[in-house]
Design a protein around this nucleic acid. Structure first.
Lengths: 155, 155
DNA sequence: CCCCGTTAGTTGACGCGTCAATCAAATGTA
DNA sequence: TACATTTGATTGACGCGTCAACTAACGGGG
C-alpha cells in the first residue's frame, strides 16, 4: 500500500479550521473587552502587571520581563512607554548593566492589577471554562500540545 | 444534594486556558507571517479578496461585504482605504442607493488573491491540519461548537 | 412637503504589533 | 589596548482595530 499523495484540504477540514480560528478570535476579543471595561486594562497590560506583581521587589529587567511575557523587545518597549504614561510602571536605568533598564510596578499599577484580576479570572471562567465539559477540556489540552509540538520548532 | 458554590479556577484549568489562548495566538501569527511573505497579503486582505472573488461581478456593496467578512463598518472602511491605495480593489458610488458604495475587485486584486490562495491553504495544512489526528479534529469541532454556543448570545 | 429617525459610510484619535534602523554599553579577541 | 561583535533597549514608520463623532441620504408619518 503506497503512501497516498497528500490530498488538498476537504470541506470538513476547512470548516473546522475556520470555526477554530474565528472562535479563538471571538473569544479573545470578548475577553479583551471585558477586561477593558472592568479595569481599563488590555490583556497586554495585564500580562505585564502580573509578571511584575510576581517578581521580587515588583521589579524586573526589561529583557527578563520580555522573556516572561514572551514578547519581542520592541513590542515590550512600545508597550512600556504607554504604560509609563499612565503611571502603571516606571523605568529606571539598571545599576549592574548600564545598557539595561529596570521596570518597577507603581502603586497605581499594583492597584489596577488587583482591581482587574478577579473579574478577569471570572471572565475566563464564564467565557471559556464554563462552556466546556471536563472531557472537552482534556481534548483542548491534547490539541494545544500537538499544535505546539508542530509550531515550536520554527523560530 | 445542593448545587455546589462555583469553585475558583484550578491550576489545571488555568494552565489549559493559557495554553489554549497562547497557542491560538501563536498559530494566528505564524499563519499571518506566512501569508504575508508568500503574497504580501494580510489575513484581512485575504478575506476581503476571497469574498469579492466569489461575488457576482466581483463586486459587493460595502455593507454586504461587511456582513460576509463579519466586520464592523468602520474597520472595513479603514481596510478598504488601505487596499484601495494598493489598487487591490476600487470603490465607486452605488447607483440604487446614493449613500452606498460598491467595492470591486481589480485585476491586481484578483491576481494577488490567486497568488496567495494556494500557499495559504498549504499553510493551514502545514500548521494546523497536519498537526492533529482525525480524532483531535473532531474534538476541535466539538469544542468550538460549545464555545460558540456560549459566546454567540452576547451582542 | 417637511421633519425625524434610521441606515450607509467615512473620519480621526488612539492603542497595539512588526519590522528595520539606530545607539550605546558590554564582551570577546587579536 | 584596540577593534569587531553581540546584546539591551529605543525609535519611527506603517498597517491594523476600536470607539465615538460625523455626514449624507433614505424612508415613513404628520
Amino acid at each position: 500500500m503506497t503512501e497516498p499523495r497528500r490530498e488538498s484540504i476537504s470541506a470538513d477540514e476547512l470548516r473546522i479550521w475556520r470555526n477554530y480560528i474565528e472562535t479563538a478570535e471571538l473569544l479573545r476579543a470578548r475577553l479583551e473587552r471585558r477586561l477593558q471595561s472592568d479595569s481599563s486594562l488590555s490583556s497586554g497590560d495585564y500580562g505585564v502587571l502580573l509578571a511584575l506583581s510576581e517578581a521580587d521587589q515588583h521589579t524586573l529587567r526589561s529583557s527578563d520581563l520580555a522573556a516572561v511575557v514572551g514578547w519581542e523587545r520592541s513590542r515590550l518597549s512600545h508597550h512600556l512607554g504607554r504604560m509609563e504614561k499612565r503611571e502603571l510602571i516606571c523605568r529606571s536605568p539598571s545599576a549592574e548593566d548600564t545598557r539595561g533598564s529596570e521596570i518597577r510596578l507603581t502603586e497605581m499599577g499594583a492597584t489596577a492589577f488587583r482591581r482587574g484580576s478577579v473579574p478577569h479570572l471570572r471572565a475566563v471562567q464564564d467565557l471559556f471554562l464554563e462552556a466546556l465539559t471536563p472531557e472537552q477540556l482534556v481534548g483542548v489540552e491534547s490539541m494545544t500540545d500537538s499544535l505546539r509540538a508542530y509550531l515550536e520548532p520554527e523560530t
